[in-house]
Simulated scan of single mutants.
Amino acid sequence: MFTRLLPVILTLTGALLMMTGPVRAEQNTAFHLAANSELENTERNARDKSDTTLTPEDQKETKKDIKITAKIRQAVVRDKSLSVDAQNAKIITRNGVVTLRGPVANEAESLKLQEVAKKMRGVVQVNNQLENKAP
C-alpha cells in the first residue's frame, strides 16, 4: 500500500515546495539558535556586549545572596502597584551588593525598587541601573 502512495506523496511534497519556495535554515530563528549556541546572546542589549555590566549569569551565588535576591523578588512581585516591567526587573546579588537592571515605567518605580532592595537584611549596597521608559 505504501509503495503505491509514495509517488503521490513525493509529487505533493514537490508541489508544496514549488508553491512556498525552499525554507533556509537562516530563516528559521529557533532552528538557527538551537544549531548555533554562540548566537543565543543575540537578544542581549548593546551595552551588555562589552561584558562590563552585570547580568544574572554573573551572579556568583552564595546562599546568602540567593536569599537576598529571593526576598527582593518576592516583595517586588507582591507589590501590585508596580508595572509588569518593574516586577520583572533583573535582580543580581553579589556579596550583598544588589544590582537592579531593566526597564521600568518611570522614576518613581525605579526609586521604589531601589528602596525595597535597600530595606532587605544583608544588603550592603544597591546599584540602580534601571531604565525609565517615561521621563
Score class of each variant (00 low, 15 high):
residue 31 F to M: 12
residue 89 A to Q: 00
residue 133 K to S: 05
residue 10 L to M: 10
residue 53 T to S: 04
residue 37 S to I: 07
residue 88 N to T: 01
residue 95 N to K: 07
residue 84 V to Y: 12
residue 79 D to L: 03
residue 75 A to D: 14
residue 87 Q to Y: 04
residue 4 R to I: 10
residue 17 L to E: 15
residue 83 S to I: 01
residue 13 T to G: 12
residue 28 N to Y: 05
residue 129 Q to K: 01
residue 55 T to L: 03
residue 106 N to M: 05
residue 58 D to N: 13
residue 66 I to D: 12
residue 38 E to H: 11
residue 41 N to H: 08
residue 135 P to Q: 09
residue 118 K to V: 02
residue 110 S to E: 00
residue 73 R to E: 08
residue 99 T to P: 00
residue 71 K to L: 11
residue 12 L to H: 07
residue 46 A to I: 03
residue 30 A to N: 14
residue 115 E to M: 01
residue 65 D to T: 10
residue 124 V to T: 14
residue 80 K to S: 14
residue 65 D to W: 04
residue 118 K to M: 02
residue 14 G to S: 08
residue 33 L to D: 11
residue 17 L to S: 12
residue 84 V to N: 11
residue 63 K to R: 15
residue 121 R to T: 15
residue 13 T to I: 11
residue 112 K to Y: 05
residue 14 G to F: 08
residue 113 L to D: 00
residue 64 K to I: 08
residue 123 V to N: 03
residue 128 N to A: 00
residue 100 L to P: 02
residue 122 G to E: 03
residue 20 T to W: 13
residue 20 T to N: 15
residue 82 L to N: 03
residue 27 Q to A: 13
residue 82 L to I: 04
residue 12 L to C: 15
residue 35 A to W: 04
residue 73 R to D: 10
residue 100 L to W: 01
residue 11 T to A: 15
residue 69 T to S: 09
residue 61 E to R: 13
residue 72 I to E: 03
residue 54 L to A: 15
residue 109 E to I: 00
residue 95 N to I: 03
residue 122 G to N: 13
residue 130 L to N: 00
residue 113 L to H: 01
residue 77 V to W: 01
residue 93 T to N: 03
residue 76 V to T: 07
residue 112 K to D: 02
residue 52 T to Y: 00
residue 115 E to V: 04
residue 96 G to D: 04
residue 42 T to Y: 13
residue 118 K to A: 05
residue 71 K to D: 08
